[in-house]
Simulated assay, not measured.
Amino acid sequence: MSTSPILTLKGVHTHIGAYHILHGVDFEVPAGEVTMLLGRNGAGKTTTLRTIMGLWQASQGQLSFKGQPLNGLATPDIATRGIAYVPENMGIFSDLTVKDNMVLAARAARHAGELDTQRLEWIFGLFPALKKFWLYPAGKLSGGQKQMLAVARAICEPRALILIDEPSKGLAPSIIQNLVTAFNELKRQQTTILLVEQNFMMAKALGDSVAVMDDGRVVHRGRMKELAEDESLQQRLLGLSLGAHQ
């Protein structure tokens, strides 16, 4: 049984230039859960995340976080409300060290000495490679380590909601499992996650609820477990089944 929503989208439309990308998106993100946002390429998933963050403004509809409207707010104002965003391109600063990347992400810290030591050790527990490469330029990290840094930057301070766009893309299975473990730990810490993902086994392992998009609309909402157990529904909504990815 789902909890009350922390984030709600009602009838959200987004235009990018002359292109009408989102066509009335409706779904809720229950507090304290991992919600999967699934769909074929080009369905509008990334646009939905970027609209929530105010990187693109909704042309119609309502977005609310903890019951307060997000419409019209600038991205920094949305971030200060407790929402973090990990984009598909990770958004890290390649020329800066891992340490400097973390300091920049922490609103309460002007230098490394002001980082929350207890939280930093918790993050190192999730991603030991970041401690090992603390003084390395981020651009010299492996793809998996860069993704770990991107997630670490989003959680360097407590956030109520994290939006994550395809974190497993191009990563080895062992790194993906590391991310699954980290996301489950975040959920235990009462952090809500909205996760766009193409790896269906990761979706099955993590997801509590799910929204499936097609052509700029949400065409299915429900519990991830129900979708994972219904191969005909997977085939109809996504064009393939979770069972094919064992």
Rank of each mutant, 00 (worst) to 15 (best):
T8M: 12
G11M: 00
G17H: 06
I21E: 02
I21C: 01
I21A: 03
L22W: 01
H23K: 14
V25Q: 00
D26G: 02
F27V: 07
P30R: 12
E33W: 03
T35R: 14
G42V: 03
G44E: 02
K45C: 06
K45M: 00
T46F: 01
T46D: 01
T47R: 04
L49W: 04
T51P: 03
I52P: 00
M53L: 08
A58S: 15
S59V: 00
G61C: 06
G67K: 12
Q68L: 11
P76Y: 13
D77M: 10
A79Y: 02
T80Y: 13
R81H: 09
G82W: 05
G82F: 11
A84S: 14
A84G: 10
Y85G: 04
P87T: 10
P87F: 10
N89T: 07
G91Q: 08
G91E: 08
I92G: 00
D95R: 15
L96T: 04
V98L: 12
V98H: 05
L104I: 14
L104W: 00
A105R: 06
A105H: 10
A108K: 15
A109T: 11
R110P: 00
H111E: 10
G113P: 10
D116E: 11
T117P: 04
Q118L: 12
E121H: 13
E121Y: 08
G125P: 12
L126G: 00
P128G: 09
P128I: 12
P128V: 05
L130F: 09
Y136I: 00
Y136N: 12
P137N: 07
L141R: 10
S142F: 01
G144Y: 04
K146L: 03
Q147D: 07
M148G: 05
A152K: 03
C156F: 09
E157N: 08
P158T: 07
A160H: 13
I164K: 02
I164T: 07
D165Q: 09
P167N: 07
P167C: 05
S168P: 11
K169T: 14
P173D: 09
S174N: 14
S174G: 00
Q177T: 15
V180G: 03
F183L: 15
E185V: 15
L186A: 09
Q190R: 12
Q190I: 04
T191P: 11
L194G: 02
V196W: 07
N199W: 02
A203C: 13
L206H: 13
V212P: 12
D214F: 00
D215R: 00
R217E: 02
R223I: 10
E226K: 08
L227H: 13
D230V: 08
D230N: 15
E231D: 15
E231W: 04
Q234C: 15
Q235Y: 09
L238S: 01
L238D: 04
S241K: 15
L242R: 04
G243R: 14
A244L: 12
